[in-house]
């Protein structure tokens, strides 16, 4: 497995506030890594820092061997890591088709080819490609958001709470979709509130508490850890 994304001693935040205090992280091709932890632990900030959407205050981030520490969101996107924000991740007034077109802005002339590829990975998109994105259901919307990110043929997918607000059935389907993408060879890093559902599909997991890694291991190990279970998996304390 080739190493795609690596962060060492990563510190990040907004303005003067440091939220992530020194995190080690690595992601390989074909691997799905899930970040879990209590609210306010800095999961989203960590993801945004990796995507260039939050301020990197220290440490080093490499993307396929290339140093991208502190690079802009656009450069990181062009270098192969696509970020899917939690909210406002689609253009509501554009059609699904047009959204994919904007997602593939960087693809230039290869747009048609990429679209065909994304529709192969996410065949459900073809079913509603002419609809206005703002009128999609929650699940369809998240699928489109992932599809848009895939338009630049990324090696790494950074997904922030893709299942927020979805019904339990849809949570499973969306996570299955991300699992499928990892099986296709992508490195998938997701922040997830539905810890149990995410652990069931991820290869590895990291628990973030107060901006630091409290535990890391295979998904099975994390799920089995008794104290963590009490804290984050909703078992009665």
């Amino acid at each position: 497995m080739s190493l795609l994304l690596q962060a060492s001693g990563l510190r990040a935040g907004y303005g003067a506030a440091e939220i992530v205090h020194g995190v080690e992280l690595s992601l390989s091709a074909g691997e799905m890594l899930t970040l879990i932890g209590p609210n306010g632990a800095g999961k989203s900030t960590l993801l945004k820092a990796l995507a260039g959407a939050a301020q990197v205050m220290g440490g080093r981030v490499t993307l396929m061997g290339q140093d991208v520490t502190g690079a802009s969101a656009a450069r990181i996107a062009a270098s192969g890591a696509a970020y899917v924000p939690q909210e406002r991740n689609i253009f509501r007034s554009l059609t699904v088709e047009e959204n994919l077109g904007i997602g593939g802005w960087l693809a230039g002339p290869a747009l048609a080819e990429r679209r065909a590829q994304v529709l192969r990975l996410l065949p459900e998109l073809a079913g509603f490609s002419r609809r206005i994105a703002g009128r999609l259901s929650g699940g369809e919307r998240q699928t489109l958001a992932v599809g848009m990110a895939l338009m630049v043929e990324p090696k790494v997918l950074l997904v922030d709470e893709p299942t927020a607000g979805l019904s339990p059935a849809l949570v499973g389907r969306l996570l299955e979709l991300l699992r499928r993408l990892a099986d296709e060879g992508l490195g998938v890093l997701i922040v997830e509130q539905n810890a149990r559902a995410a652990l069931a599909r991820a290869d590895r997991a990291m628990v973030l508490v107060d901006g630091q890694v409290a535990a890391a291991g295979t998904a099975a190990e994390i799920e089995a850890a008794p104290d963590l279970g009490a804290l984050f998996l909703g078992r009665a304390a």
Partner: peptide
């Protein structure tokens, strides 16, 4: 292509920037 990008930037400039 540019006309659609104008609509996208009007809809959500932050996301448009993220998408390059």
């Amino acid at each position: 292509r540019w006309g659609r990008a104008v609509r996208a930037a009007a809809d959500d400039p932050t996301l448009a920037a993220v998408r390059g």
